[in-house]
Amino acid sequence: MSFVDLHTHLPSASAPEWASWRQSGVLAEMDRFGIARAAVMTLDGLGYDAVSGNDVVAQVCAGSDGRLLPFGSVDPRRPDAADELRRCADRGFHAIKLHPWMQGFSPLETYMDPVAEAAIERGLPLVLHDGTPPYASPLQIARLAARFPELTVVLAHGGLFDLWEDAVAAALRYPNVHITMCGTAPRAVFREISRRVPAAKLTLGTDGGFGDPDLRRHRLSVHRAILAELPDDDAAALAHRNAERLLGLT
């Protein structure tokens, strides 16, 4: 089974892992794990400056033959957030990652409107960290999707431990809400999500690059166990087809 890993992070520039970060090393690791393509998201861009974070993401993904998929970010409070989103689209980014508590915003505030409109205009999904209150609850994020039915919204963690039933509710109620199964919640939770939510709405991620160096291997072992319980078609949809469709990959 070939995977698209829809959730990985670049290490923070202040972390030792960044000093040793090499594209060749990352691609070799993906080969070892059977990951065909992987989203690349910033960490520093969420905490400090989205624009410079995007520049770094573009740089590290270049020359990977399409295997590293640049995801940008914008600071929704900034008046030029929509312009930065368009700049991401112009340089071939595949989605926009937003993290309400790291970036200090609520998905319900009106400054999200121009960001959502630009995302619709350029066909970029918004991938939002979810599962941790107060501003990253699945139902808050779902209301953004409800206000913009043409927008594609991805809940990046499926509600985690405590809000996964909210994430399921959001995905069932709103056609444009999708879930990436990625996070510390146990397999029983992800198995329930995969039972309750149509397979076409589910993708997989590892959060590789964030925290424990062993995380990617660990999460993939859990994902494989879940896929093994699904019909082949659904397993392929979760492992790569849905991600390819969401991101417009061929």
């Binding site: 510390t184 146990p186 925290g211 424990d212 160096p213 062993d214 995380l215 660990h218």
Partner: peptide
Amino acid sequence: AETAYNGASL
């Protein structure tokens, strides 16, 4: 501490 849900490095 308990180990559940923590990675090897932690």
